[in-house]
């Protein structure tokens, strides 16, 4: 190997320089996995304390069908709760920013809903709404919607006075000001909120599943740990984080495709 490297040093080196940003974290990750695997083997750590990566992989792939089913169940809750949070946040933020009366009336209430610990609310919602999907969706919604409302409101309010004056100088109506100036200006803020919210929606869905569920990755983690099936519990947890990453990236890619100038602006 070494003599190849010495004969053609520059292309290899160039490849390294170019892909360092992506390669380095992958290598670090693999090294951590390796270290983890070795430690578990060398120190004979019992599986219920810390399963080896290989054991997690085996347990998860052996039951791929089961894990997939639970994944879809969680995904469904996440998507429904997240969708609901978008449907409610956007108009709410528009209302908050276009009327001082609405803002004064609603904003304190909004903050109040945020001070309620969602985990504490979950069992109460189950009694009120029944042991079905609804309380899980509502909890997901409650966790996700607040940062979204705050982000959209902030975006709509942070439009520079110059741009508002520009609209006024051409006698823009309030609706035109909202649609032509405030809303597009807020797009980067909205997407930053959408990204935070989608990550939180996954958390919300799992919290809901912990409290009441017979399906979903949260449920799978609970039942697995109850029987000390730690590799599967770890596997479910990793699938959850993967779901979070993928959903986050979907939102990020959607922003890049739909509003190229928006992601550009954030990079500045």
């Amino acid at each position: 190997m070494s003599h190849i490297a010495t004969r053609t040093p520059s292309p290899l080196r160039r490849f390294w320089m170019r892909s360092q940003g992506t390669l380095l974290p992958v290598i670090t990750f693999l090294l951590v996995l390796l270290l983890w695997e070795i430690c578990v083997k060398v120190f004979a750590i019992p599986e219920f304390l810390l399963p080896a990566p290989s054991a997690i992989w085996l347990a998860t792939t052996e039951q791929a069908g089961l894990v997939w089913g639970h994944t879809l169940a969680t995904l469904r809750t996440v998507v429904l709760g997240y969708g609901l949070s978008i449907l409610i946040s956007l108009p709410l933020a528009f209302a908050l920013t276009s009327s001082r009366i609405v803002a004064n009336a609603v904003y304190p209430l909004l903050i109040l809903t945020q001070s309620i610990p969602k985990v504490a609310l979950a069992p109460i919602l189950v009694i009120a709404l029944g042991a079905n999907e609804l309380p899980r969706v509502i909890i997901t919604f409650l966790v996700a919607f607040f940062p979204l409302v705050v982000a959209v409101t902030t975006g709509l309010l942070s439009v520079p006075g110059d741009l508002i004056e520009l609209g006024r100088s051409y006698r823009a109506t309030r609706l035109q000001q909202m649609v032509q100036i405030r809303m597009p200006y807020a797009i980067p803020f909205i997407f930053s909120g959408l990204k935070t919210a989608v990550a939180l929606a996954v958390v919300g869905a799992v919290v809901g599943e912990f409290v009441t569920s017979d399906r979903g990755l949260g449920y799978l983690i609970q039942t697995s740990t109850a029987f000390f099936r730690m590799p599967l519990a770890f596997g479910a947890m990793l699938v959850l984080s993967l779901m979070g990453i993928v959903l986050f990236q979907i939102v990020a890619v959607a922003e890049k495709l739909l509003f190229p100038w928006s992601s550009q602006q954030q990079a500045d």
């Binding site: 110059d162 741009l163 004056e165 006698r171 100036i181 200006y185 100038w261 928006s262």
Partner: peptide, 19 residues
């Protein structure tokens, strides 16, 4: 009495719409 079409305004900053 208010903004009118007979005037055009140029601001200190270009105030272009980024999007």
């Amino acid at each position: 009495k208010g903004p009118q079409v007979k005037t055009g305004f140029v601001f200190q900053k270009a105030t272009l719409l980024e999007w």
